[in-house]
Design a protein around this nucleic acid. Structure first.
Length: 691
DNA sequence: AAGATCGGTAAGGGTAATGATATTTT
DNA sequence: CAAAATATCATTACCCTTACCGATCT
């Protein structure tokens, strides 16, 4: 894509003429990308290799005419040092009104570039130091921060977990150990020396964080679920007997120490439950203000010792107090106003404007500032989550169980798309590319729960080579679609164009069946690729053809009932989200960033960020640069209830913020920025609309 | 032998999912 | 008005960071 080229000053595009994909026993795909000559990495670790990043991206853009659906892939290094990449895929389909898309063709462009600092703000090279340091103290962190290091904090993304698991697996394999729990719980410190350091590789987190994460993950007494009344009783007794010896109490209950500790915190003997009385609210307010030296009416959202507050309130636990205060009382007392649909739009717009790569980077305090209908930064954050959840199928986890929050809210509304060519966007699986040690060779890491859009079947190795000189640019190879779709047989062809490598997928079936274009578009590949192999659920037999033929229409029908099905556990249907956007953005945003950062953003970001109005929204949508993500009609995936959410989609994958429409009056849509493909969690952006 | 580092625990702040209710829509 | 759909408030299981400790290392 042109964009890339433009940036030539900062970006070096390397061409790859051939790519070899191999599959290891575990099913991981290994992508071997021959280095162009010498430049490649592997320079000893000693010197910092220039950052290079593999960037797979779609090449559609200009060729609108092709109106070919395509899959965009963007790979970003997880951290500067390590050479692993996170790859995010999205599929786009053009749905011109009149145009007909011919089959499904997916193109993937592979390029490499350097200096994308903007995109990945990871400090400098020595980031790895982060994962090798225990540094738990504030001072340690400040110190590293001052040196320019940055590291991840907060919830672990699926990608990070994948890396961790993979690292552990490799560690085990290397030493012939079958079960990680042996190391974690049975070995002595000495015996497992360097275990944590080794598995922390590639993770931009302090060693201590990795340690904690691993302990929890492998402790089967840690996810036992709800406490029964009997357990609660026993817990109380044990508490009296053993005090704060959580380890002992936990052992007696078959729960982890942290679990029993947490549970005890919730049980305050003197706690009331249910609705708060005015008396209690009054007391809570007084206590909070007193302890924070603030006045009634002041907004207090942090710096409160809830344990101390609860102590004084007397009838409520610290969590109850906090929740009440942050989600209601403080707002009420300080003259808060009701949250409206307009606020919702504003929220989405503002987040889009932030253009943050990682949702964790959002400064909710700032965002909430001066916003009277926002009850607290924390409340706003959860508000955002609920909005996302309504359409965010990707967030897998909650999916199967989400009985609530149907996105159905939007039912009656009509979504009108801009005329002209629209593109639907599907979020595909994301995965990691980890260096294997051989220059140019990366491991496409797929956790068991995640499949890749491309699966090699027949031959374990598929090599893409330049096609005949005659058609220099064309290299076509073959890969196959995911197993579960084998029957239906989609063929995926990889095609290389110099200087780019283009991978094309062709859904033969669809072609053959000559379904109307629109339908085709997304389906074939997207669908196939999109939902990898949810393990059990995707058996061929369980997957009737219908699945394969989901129709995805971009039209008006977005909102129909699919949503409601969301809550139907029996027929879990995934609500796929489709992002519709105009093409310009498409290209740009995929690689954008560096120099023309916000070209996109600027399009719809109005000066008056403070209070975007609906009109503005419409406007933007009217222009081209809108990106809309809406749930596609269900049917894409239908899985048995057994479907494991995790399999569904990599959670954090998306990329763009969104938009949303509301009300009858406005028909439409959202916009978002194209953004960043961030390094880690891009959930942020995907977004949504639809309600 | 003091300071730094390591491996680890407990406390506490916080989040995301789930429940329960109240309210609105059909 | 009842039932269904939503919105809202409450609860809780689980997560993550920080403060601190004692044992080692240097």
């Amino acid at each position: 894509m042109s964009t890339v080229e433009e940036d030539s000053d900062t970006v070096t595009v390397e061409t790859v003429n051939s790519v070899t994909l191999t599959q290891d026993p575990e099913g991981n795909l290994i992508l071997h990308c021959p280095q162009n000559e010498a430049d490649e990495i592997d320079s000893e670790d000693s010197t910092e290799p220039p950052h290079k990043r593999l960037c797979l991206s779609s090449e559609d853009d200009q060729s609108i005419d092709d109106s070919a659906p395509c899959i965009s892939v963007v790979a970003l290094p997880l951290s500067e040092n390590d050479q692993s990449f996170e790859v995010t895929m999205t599929a786009t389909t053009e749905v011109a009104d009149d145009e007909i898309t011919e089959g499904t063709v997916t193109q993937i462009q592979i390029l490499q570039n350097e200096q994308l600092d903007e995109i990945s703000p990871l400090g400098n090279e020595e980031v790895s130091a982060v994962s090798q340091a225990w540094f738990t103290t504030k001072e340690d962190k400040d110190s590293l921060t001052n040196k320019g290091h940055k590291w991840k904090q907060g919830m672990w993304s699926k990608e990070e977990i994948d890396i961790l698991m993979n690292n552990i697996e490799r560690y085990l394999k290397a030493r012939g150990i079958k079960d990680a729990t042996e190391i974690i719980f049975e070995m002595s410190k000495d015996e497992r020396k360097d275990f944590y350091r080794t598995i922390a590789w590639g993770l931009n987190r302090p060693l201590f964080a990795v340690y904690r994460r691993v302990l929890r993950m492998y402790d089967d007494r840690n996810h036992v679920g709800k406490y029964t009344p009997e357990e609660i009783e026993k817990l109380k007794e044990l508490r009296i007997k053993h005090g704060n010896d959580w380890a002992t109490i936990g052992a007696a209950l078959g729960r982890s120490a942290s679990s029993v500790k947490d549970r005890c915190r919730l049980m305050k003997d003197t706690c009331n439950t249910g609705k708060w009385t005015e008396e209690e609210e009054k007391r809570l307010a007084e206590v909070v203000h007193e302890l924070t030296s603030t006045e009634p009416g002041d907004i207090v959202t942090q710096g409160v010792s809830w344990a101390a507050v609860a102590e004084r309130v007397g009838t409520r636990s610290e969590k109850q107090c906090r929740s009440k205060w942050l989600n209601y009382l403080n707002w009420k007392q300080s003259g808060g106003t009701e949250w409206t649909k307009e606020d919702e739009i504003n929220l989405i717009l503002r987040i889009a404007e932030l253009d943050v790569a990682d949702e964790n980077d959002i400064n909710w305090d700032l965002l909430a500032e001066g916003w009277s209908s926002v009850r607290s930064p924390q409340w706003l954050r959860s508000k955002w989550w609920t909005i996302k959840r309504q359409i965010a199928n990707h967030k897998d986890v909650s999916f199967p169980a989400s009985t609530d929050s149907p996105a159905a809210t939007v039912d009656s509304e009509t979504i009108t798309l801009n005329s002209g060519t629209l593109q639907t966007f599907e979020i595909l699986p994301s995965f990691h590319l980890q260096p294997t040690g051989t220059p140019g060779t990366y491991l496409l890491q797929t956790s068991s729960s995640q499949g890749l859009p491309l699966t090699l079947t027949a031959s374990p190795t598929v090599t893409l080579t330049a096609a005949a000189p005659a058609s220099p640019e064309q290299i076509i190879v073959h890969a196959l679609s995911p197993e579960h779709l084998l029957n239906t047989s989609d063929n995926v062809t990889l095609q290389c164009h110099t200087p780019r490598v283009i991978i094309q997928t062709v859904a033969t079936e669809d072609l053959a069946s000559s379904i109307s274009q629109t339908e085709l578009t997304v389906d074939g590949d997207i669908q196939s690729s999109d939902f990898p192999e949810p393990p059990d659920a995707l058996e061929a037999d369980t997957f009737p053809d219908e699945i394969h033929q989901p129709k995805m229409t971009v039209e008006p029908s977005f909102n129909d009932g699919h949503v409601s099905k969301f809550s139907d556990q029996n027929s879990t249907e995934l609500m796929n989200s489709v992002m519709v956007r105009t093409e310009e953005i498409l290209d740009t945003d995929l690689k954008q960033e560096e120099e023309s950062p916000s070209h996109l953003a600027s399009a719809y970001v109005t000066e008056d960020l403070e209070s975007p109005t609906i009109e503005q929204v419409d406007q933007t949508t009217i222009d081209d640069e809108t990106i809309l993500i809406v749930p596609s009609p269900h049917g894409f995936i239908q899985a048995s209830d057994a479907i494991d959410t995790e399999c569904v989609l990599p959670l954090t994958t998306l990329t763009d913020p969104i938009l949303h429409h509301h009300q009858e009056e406005s028909n439409i849509i959202g916009s978002s920025l194209g953004s960043p493909v961030s390094e880690d969690s891009k959930d942020v952006e995907d977004l949504v609309n639809c309600h």
